[in-house]
């Protein structure tokens, strides 16, 4: 993976607790606000996403965590009435700048959605879709290679290797979601955004996907929205707590779940609201 440096490798294997001060900021939100029409859904969010770490966004439903996530690869552009203020950078470049191309941005910042959404095509074609539109494979052998390695990384290769040309919609929910993750990986993004990727899955499938997320951290920067605090605690290094459109508190996951500063975070993790 060309995005790996020794530096980041070192970070990736670093202990969760002892995050080093030379951690790399991959993405940074600076006073991000989002309006849907007249209604403001997000207020002045300042949040850093660190390289090769899993950042979890938690908070009660409707708190703006998904909205923030969708800003990171400009998926909000697809909603006519949405308007984003403030600044979001990827490697210090403003992603809402005119010079940034949204297609290229999304090739670098991939996304996995809440409900598994495989295309009504074969498993192979689902994974090959991204590389194909971006022209990443010159020959069929290259494409086969990309598909295989993506499926392997998504930990679903063994289950589907004999039925690559069957429709992706025929898989079980958990398999579909891992297929969608493979599809996102196949484009070789730098950052993967996951919007409640396990909410539609059963506990066993959830466990598989969580394991996968932890493995993926080695090579990718991950931002995950989750409704479940346990999940955030299990998979993330950093956690950000949202409430009513505001970022309440952000910090190392262990600290957030043991000793949060904000009263609302305390209330939330102890189950007072949600």
């Amino acid at each position: 993976m060309n995005i790996m440096t020794e530096q980041s490798l070192e970070n990736a294997v670093g202990d969760k607790m002892n995050a080093k001060s030379n951690e790399v900021i991959k993405m940074r939100g600076d006073k991000v606000g989002v309006f849907y029409g007249e209604k403001q859904a997000l207020f002045d969010v300042n949040l850093d996403v660190r390289l090769n770490q899993v950042t979890a966004l938690i908070g009660p439903s409707g708190c703006g965590k998904s909205t923030f996530l969708r800003c990171l690869n400009r998926m909000n552009d697809t909603i006519d009435s949405a308007r984003v203020t403030g600044k979001i950078t990827l490697d210090q470049e403003d992603i809402y700048d005119k010079s940034i191309d949204v297609v290229e941005l999304r090739a670098r910042v991939g996304m996995v959605f809440q409900k598994p959404n495989p295309f009504p095509k074969s498993i192979y074609e689902n994974v090959a879709y991204g590389p194909r539109i971006h022209g990443l494979a010159k020959r069929k052998a290259d494409m086969d290679q990309i598909v295989e390695s993506s499926l392997k990384k998504a930990a679903i290769w063994n289950e589907v290797k004999d039925r690559l040309h069957e429709p992706g919609t025929g898989l079980s929910g958990g398999q579909q979601q891992r297929l969608c993750i493979a599809r996102a990986i196949a484009v070789s993004p730098e950052v993967i955004l996951m919007d409640e990727p396990c909410s539609a899955l059963d506990p066993i499938a959830t466990a598989r996907v969580e394991e996968l997320i932890d493995e993926l951290r080695q090579n990718y920067t991950i931002v995950i929205v989750t409704h479940s605090m346990q999940q955030a605690a299990r998979v993330s290094q950093r956690t950000a707590m949202f409430h009513l459109g505001y970022l309440v508190e952000e910090g190392a996951t262990d600290k957030m779940f043991t000793n949060p500063d904000d009263k609302r975070t305390q209330d939330y993790i102890t189950g007072r609201f949600g």
């Binding site: 790399v24 950078t89 210090q92 090739a107 952000e250």
Partner: peptide, 26 residues
């Protein structure tokens, strides 16, 4: 630690930009 100023931040080597054929696609 949450607010590392951008200028003092250690940057990863900028990833090589891939050619994804944007001109033709647009």
């Amino acid at each position: 630690m949450t607010d590392i100023p951008l200028d003092t931040m250690v940057r990863a080597a900028a990833p090589a930009r891939r050619d994804i054929g944007l001109k033709a696609r647009y």
